[in-house]
């Protein structure tokens, strides 16, 4: 389910930001990870992907990189059950 995946991404992203003492703006499926609109860097994004693998058991990047820029695009990579 993309909606529950989006909620999971928002929850973990919020935790990562909070660890740095940052607060996230309102997130939408169109929020872009690294364009400067969110207070996260590549290490934070890498952390998110590792945590998502732990929580979902899925690694959509196992066979190589798949392009994503927004929250919605990332959520869609996990939408098909493994």
């Amino acid at each position: 389910m993309t909606d529950s995946m989006l909620a999971l991404i928002a929850e973990e992203l919020g935790r990562i930001a909070a660890d740095k003492g940052e607060a996230l703006p309102a997130l939408t499926p169109d929020s872009v990870f690294l364009d400067g609109g969110l207070p996260i860097d590549s290490l934070d994004l890498a952390t998110l992907l590792v945590v998502l693998e732990q929580r979902t058991g899925q690694d959509p990047f196992r066979a190589g990189f798949r392009h994503f820029t927004t929250l919605g695009e990332l959520a869609a990579l996990y939408a098909v059950p493994a």
Partner: peptide, 12 residues
């Protein structure tokens, strides 16, 4: 390479 991955993502 890590820079480039981030650059491609941020540039769209």
């Amino acid at each position: 390479p890590s820079f480039w991955r981030g650059f491609l993502m941020a540039a769209g």
